[in-house]
Design a protein around this nucleic acid. Sequence first.
DNA 1: GTCTATGCAAACGTTTTGCAGTGGG
DNA 2: CCCACTGCAAAACGTTTGCATAGAC
Lengths: 124, 124
Amino acid sequence: MRRKTVQKDAIKNAFLMESRPLRVDEILQMGRKVVKSLNQATVYRNLKCLVEIGWLRIINHPDLGIFYERAGKEHHHYFHCHACDRLFEIPGCALHEKEFVPPGFVTERHQVFLFGICSACGRT
Amino acid sequence: MRRKTVQKDAIKNAFLMESRPLRVDEILQMGRKVVKSLNQATVYRNLKCLVEIGWLRIINHPDLGIFYERAGKEHHHYFHCHACDRLFEIPGCALHEKEFVPPGFVTERHQVFLFGICSACGRT
DNA sequence: GTCTATGCAAACGTTTTGCAGTGGG
DNA sequence: CCCACTGCAAAACGTTTGCATAGAC
């Protein structure tokens, strides 16, 4: 991860152009539009590096599987619309964890996944 | 799933004896204490059936991967202690989703995963 | 006896790894 | 020129499937 390559730039660019969590296959597809020889092994290796240096975060979504998103965003929840199958980031936090965990338990971090219908799909 | 077999009973018993979410390899190990010939394919097939008939639920934990738990329990959150690596079920709900989702969005279901230190490990 | 459920092995999709060669510095 | 990074192919991993047969009823 010390050298600059076109493959690396293509992968990072996918996240800069789309401001939403991406799956590996999406990243590969987007990257191949720039570097058509781009290999999946290269994508996996670079994603691993980008997570290690704190540029990306992994999300393992309970229904949709593994996504990668830019790190450093403020805390948010994830909303999966089962009509259009899109994954939304909902800013803010609706969890009142301090009032909630049993005595002695210390919560350092949490993740919330919501499932339902988004405004676009609910509009019918 | 119409016939009663020792394999099936062994798998169901694992959940009746342990009242916590179980991983496939744990279920296989526990089942083999009863039926030493128990095969992983059999475990997978039975787990699938038990999910279909609503006896089990699948949990895909963001950090720990796939677990199975008895269905029909009241809603709860999951607390992962990164010291002892155990997965706790926290009864109740600390999510105020109605006050929270953007207008037009309808939440039907949610899952909350907490990460931290449990009371036993924090006591030190 | 029938036919479901099992055990085995092979197939599967996704991710990782070994290795030779490309190309960034 | 060096060695990090890439592409390829094979391996690894967890899960699923095809098939012959044991065993539930």
